[in-house]
Amino acid sequence: MTPDFDPVALAVPFFVLAIVLEIILGRLGRAKANYEPRDTFTSLAMGLGSTTAGLLTGGAIFAASLWVYEHRLFEIPMTAIWAWVALFLLEDMTYYWFHRLAHERRFWWASHVNHHTSQHYNLSTALRQTWTGGVAGTWLLWLPLSLIGFPPAMVAIQKGISLVYQFWIHTEAIGRMPRWFEAVFNTPSHHRVHHARNPRYLDRNYAGVLIIWDRLFGTFQAELDEEPCRYGVVKNLGTFNLLRVAFHEWAAIGRDLLTARSPREAAGYLFGPPGWSLDGSRETSDQIRARWAATQPEALSREAAAATGPTPAARSESLV
Score class of each variant (00 low, 15 high):
Phe107Asp: 03
Gly309Trp: 06
Glu36Asp: 11
Glu265Asp: 05
Tyr35Asp: 05
Asp286Arg: 15
Ile24Gly: 02
Ser146Ala: 15
Arg289Ile: 03
Gly232Asp: 05
Cys229His: 00
Glu22Ala: 11
Ala196Gln: 08
Thr259Met: 11
Ser318Phe: 01
Tyr95Ile: 07
Leu145Lys: 03
Ser316Cys: 12
Met154Gly: 11
Ala207Gly: 15
Asp6Thr: 02
Phe98Arg: 13
Ala294Cys: 04
Leu25Asp: 05
Gly275Pro: 02
Gly232Trp: 02
Gly49Asn: 08
Phe185Ile: 02
Pro3Leu: 07
Trp82Val: 10
Thr239Cys: 05
Ala126Leu: 00
Leu257Arg: 12
Arg176Ala: 14
Phe220Thr: 01
Ser285Cys: 07
Pro228Cys: 04
His170Gly: 07
Gly133Asn: 12
Phe74Thr: 11
Leu257Phe: 08
Tyr165Ala: 05
Pro13Asn: 06
Val12Met: 14
Ala33Glu: 10
Pro152Met: 06
Glu303Trp: 03
Gly309His: 05
Ala136Val: 07
Ile157Arg: 09
Arg38Ile: 00
Thr52His: 05
Leu140Arg: 03
Met154Phe: 15
Pro199Glu: 07
Pro178Gly: 13
Ile81Gln: 06
Ala207Thr: 07
Ala86Glu: 03
Thr125Asn: 06
Pro273Ile: 07
Asp279Gly: 03
Ile161Ala: 13
Thr94Asp: 12
His170Trp: 06
Ser189Gln: 04
Leu44Trp: 11
Phe220Tyr: 15
Glu75Asp: 15
Phe5Leu: 14
Pro274Tyr: 13
Val155Tyr: 09
Lys235Ala: 13
Ile148Ser: 09
Pro188Tyr: 11
Leu123Gly: 12
Val233Gln: 09
Ala156Arg: 08
Ile174Tyr: 11
Gln158Tyr: 03
Pro263Met: 11
Leu258Thr: 12
Phe14Gln: 01
Asp39Tyr: 10
Gly26Phe: 08
Met78Ser: 13
Ala246Tyr: 07
Gly54Ser: 08
His120Leu: 07
His120Trp: 08
Arg38Gly: 01
Arg230Trp: 01
Thr219Pro: 01
Leu21Ser: 13
Ile23Cys: 08
Asn114Ile: 09
Arg291Leu: 02
Thr295Asn: 13
Gly280Lys: 12
Gly238Tyr: 02
Ala196Gly: 14
Ser118Pro: 06
Ala183Arg: 08
His115Lys: 05
Tyr96Asn: 06
Leu210Ile: 10
Asp203Gly: 06
Gly54Tyr: 05
Pro77Phe: 06
Ile81Thr: 10
Ile288Asn: 02
Ala9Ser: 13
Ala266Lys: 09
Tyr269Pro: 00
Ala83Asp: 06
Val184Met: 09
Leu237Val: 04
Ala64Leu: 12
Thr130His: 09
Ser301Tyr: 09
Arg215His: 14
Asp92Gly: 01
Asn34Arg: 15
Phe107Ala: 14
Pro188Lys: 05
Ile253Met: 15
Thr308His: 08
Pro188Ala: 11
Phe5Tyr: 15
Ala207Ile: 02
Ile19Trp: 06
Ala299Cys: 00
Val245Lys: 05
